[in-house]
């Protein structure tokens, strides 16, 4: 879970207290993923339990809040995180792909209309995201500006992938309609098995690295 590694990454730079971690996490990711203090303290408790983080000695007796720093094991864990690609094995249950998968076989549903409505909506979201990007200065970015723009880019590229996929769906459906589509139960079970195999293979391949 990325909050856990995110806190490790922050603590590697300097000891912090919980509130600072929350602030820094939000600031450095452009506020895209707000955290509540409950999430921070729960995560922090687990990190301490697992021996990755420990309370820092407080030289200043007046300090009201406890600061934390990384242990050697915490540094190892963080190094592993930087070095390991994020696993993309099990596809998340995505409403849009479920909706379109059902739509192609549902009677009386016009897939083209669904595709166009979604394309417009996704394009609208992309336009809003791009406007936030455009508000950044043309040059002379701080590292926070860069971090924020990269987070926005991630959302923009993901939205773009969705639009491209919708284009693909549209042309596939048009072609299938021209050829006269069929519904085939054995094809369905064959595909389910293939998906399960692919997922298992990816998980196994990534398992060794974890």
């Amino acid at each position: 879970m990325s909050v856990r590694q995110g806190l490790l990454a922050l603590l590697a730079e300097t000891p912090m207290h919980a509130y600072q971690m929350r602030q820094q996490f939000e600031h450095r990711t452009g506020g895209t993923w707000p955290l509540n203090m409950g999430q921070v303290s729960t995560t922090l408790d687990r990190l301490v339990r697992d021996g990755l983080v420990e309370p820092a000695d407080t030289a200043d007796a007046d300090a009201e809040v406890q600061r934390y720093h990384l242990t050697a094991a915490g540094r190892d864990e963080l190094a592993t995180w930087w070095a390991t690609p994020v696993v993309r094995s099990t596809p998340a249950r995505d409403e849009l792909s479920i909706k379109l998968a059902l739509a192609v076989s549902a009677p009386g549903v016009d897939v083209r209309t669904i595709v166009q409505a979604q394309r417009t909506e996704t394009m609208r979201a992309m336009t809003d995201l791009t406007r936030l990007k455009a508000d950044l200065p043309a040059s002379g970015w701080s590292s926070e500006d860069l971090a924020w723009s990269l987070v926005l880019d991630h959302l923009v590229f993901a939205a773009e992938a969705e639009v491209r996929w919708l284009d693909h769906v549209e042309s596939r459906v048009a072609r299938a309609a021209a050829e006269g589509g069929t519904s085939d139960e054995t094809a369905v079970s064959r595909r389910a098995a293939a998906t399960a195999r692919a997922t298992a293979a990816t998980a196994a391949a990534s398992g060794g690295a974890r």
Binding site: Q116, T120, A159, E160
Partner: peptide
């Protein structure tokens, strides 16, 4: 490229010579 179209104020979609939709 949708990513570049997103720099526009709005996008209109053309299909078979007809404007079918737009983001407004």
């Amino acid at each position: 490229e949708p990513r570049f179209a997103a720099w526009a104020d709005r996008t209109v979609f053309v299909r078979d010579g007809v404007v079918v939709d737009g983001t407004g």
